[in-house]
């Protein structure tokens, strides 16, 4: 990784087949993200935020261009390598939480650690630490359907953070939350960013989130319209 840049994108194009033709979701994207940034992709629906986030998260591949995450080119990774990248270095937070409904809070947060093959003792300590960060140590035996939306998203944050990944990708994390819960979640994430030096990249059009961002990357019709750093 040159100059502590963890994400490097050059001339990224992403097209999707549509009917007999193609739809260009991203066009000529160039972007570099450094370690510890708290940045967001901002734009209206259809601007390509989620598509870009999915490509960075190695859940999708570019049509053309270069996308390097932690020094690895997404286009060149095979299924196993991209799974390893996600498993070891990336954390995901989704708009609708995507928690495993039949698992308890503890088991949901423990899941990424199981994939990493950590021992039961290590897992327990890390899960409890993560739940303490989000203030949910009293809910370890609850299952997602028994939790409020805010609590679910806090579990999702704990799950994303538990393995202390290099990058957390958060797709509209506050879209289903009220103002108070949104602020709580964002504060927590900001603290974790500060304490653990984890990079956060949001995809959002929510003002509440935008206000917290230290770097705002505006997307419009699949292109970067503006990229501004907010001084603290």
């Amino acid at each position: 990784m040159e100059n502590s840049s963890i994400i490097k994108i050059e001339n990224l194009v992403k097209k999707f087949p549509m009917g007999k033709g193609e739809f260009t979701a991203l066009s000529g994207i160039g972007l570099t993200l450094s370690q510890g940034e708290f940045a967001g992709l901002i734009g209206p629906s259809g601007s390509g935020k989620t598509t870009l986030l999915n490509i960075i998260g190695s859940l999708d591949v570019p049509t053309s261009g270069l996308v390097k995450v932690l020094g690895q080119s997404i286009s060149e990774l095979n299924a196993k390598e991209s799974a390893r990248l996600r498993k070891e270095n990336l954390g995901f937070i989704f708009q609708s939480y995507n928690l495993l409904a039949v698992h308890t809070v503890y088991e949901n947060v423990e899941f990424p650690l199981l994939l990493l093959g950590l021992s039961s003792g290590e897992r327990k300590k890390m899960v409890m630490d993560a739940l303490e960060w989000v203030g949910l140590t009293d809910k370890i035996r609850s299952k997602p359907p028994q939790l409020s939306g805010g609590e679910c998203q806090r579990v999702a944050v704990a799950r994303a953070m538990v393995k202390k990944p290099s990058i957390v990708l958060a797709d509209e994390p506050t879209a289903n939350l009220d103002a108070a819960n949104s602020h709580n979640i964002l504060k927590t994430m900001e603290e974790l960013n500060r304490e653990l030096k984890t990079s956060f990249l949001f995809a959002t059009h929510d003002e509440k989130v935008i206000n917290y961002l230290h770097r705002k990357i505006f997307l419009l019709d699949g292109r970067i319209d503006k990229d501004e750093v907010v001084s603290n």
Binding site: L100, A101, R159
Partner: peptide, 16 residues
């Protein structure tokens, strides 16, 4: 479907 997507996002391959 969501759960399957989540497994993949968290680090599973589709074959797994």
């Amino acid at each position: 479907q969501k759960e399957i997507g989540t497994y993949i996002a968290l680090g599973y391959t589709r074959r797994e």
